[in-house]
Design a protein around this nucleic acid. Sequence first.
DNA 1: TCTGGGGTCCTAGGACCC
DNA 2: TCTGGGGTCCTAGGACCC
Length: 386
Amino acid sequence: MNILHCDLDAFYASVEQRDHPELVGKPVIVGGLPGSRGVVSTCSYEAREYGVCSAMPAKQAYRLCPQAVFLPPDIPKYIRVSQDVFAILHRYSPVLEALSIDEAFLDVSGCHRLFGSSAQIAKMIKNDVLQETGLLISVGIAANKFLAKLATNLSKPNGLMELGNDEIAEILPSLPVSEIWGIGSKTAHRLNKAGIYTIADLLEFPRSKLETILGSNTDFYIQLCSGKDSRPVLSRSDRKSIGNEITFPVDLADQKEIEQLLLELSCQVAYRVRHASLIAHTVTIKMRTPDFQTFTRSQTLQQGVDADLTIYDIALNMYHQSGLAGKHLRLLGLSCSKLLERNLEQPALFADENDILDKIIDDMKDKFGSAAIKRGSLLNKKGRNM
DNA sequence: TCTGGGGTCCTAGGACCC
DNA sequence: TCTGGGGTCCTAGGACCC
């Protein structure tokens, strides 16, 4: 029982309730605003009582709970709080795997002499997080990652659950397959169509037929359903991609306007790439049409890129070659991948004037914030801000 | 009813190389 | 005239997670 899964309860909404005491006890919905095309990122437990949940369209959330307080997310603030919480977790074990901004696995094997049993460590973590950040965190304890995460899910909010062999034998068989980490709505639906609703159903199903649904992951999922999971807790390796995307308030077909937005995205992403001291070898654009079909185009380059206008040129070219130029779009995205550390890359012999301009703009963004300065061609007559 | 934005990982086909 | 097999990389799409 050495694996802990730690998950902050209703993270974004809880931070807002902490910072705005008048919101405590009220339904709070962080994410898209009611009139927008956004969705709910996180909602407080008060809002959940009305049927509101994560990923629900904001319009639908408003219909269910019009009295809720809708707030846009303040991601930089949540990142700061998250860092504080992860620092607390780090005190108890160096083997920490961050899953997201509000979730992490901790392997506490070898930490018992210093801190006591897993359950004692979990209690100390919950206490420290509450004392130092004012937030509630749920902790699941088990022999492996799958079961630890399950324990957290079963005990939220403000949970602390240790899943031992007896509990596993009792709980696991009747759980719906959608509770399995990695089984999403599509796969769950296909399993249901085959008559598989619970973990017990899955284990009784002929393996060969199961393989037509789960493919090469069949054995892995059978193991999970048997309560076995040999994946180690691993500190996150380097990030694989950096990207931004935007869903327009209304569908857009005007090429000039889309090109302008592509330039804005290029500048945002390039800035983040440079800020991380990285260089990208692949640029990808993403387009979504009003019927919700998503298309991507990507290009891999011999020479790594990090300049605003270089990335923009590549993106613009792909947009015009995509067959979607002039068509209505509801989403436009740009991302950079195949990232390498900049100092490992052979530097260009001469920095050109674009590099110098990027450097000046970056310095100003660092000092005054990203809204303070942008390229002249990004300022249209309305003074759009993004 | 109308579907965000940040990501990760996987698959399948095709090009290319030996 | 008929063309294997293995490996790697690229591209596009899709499932999934929070």
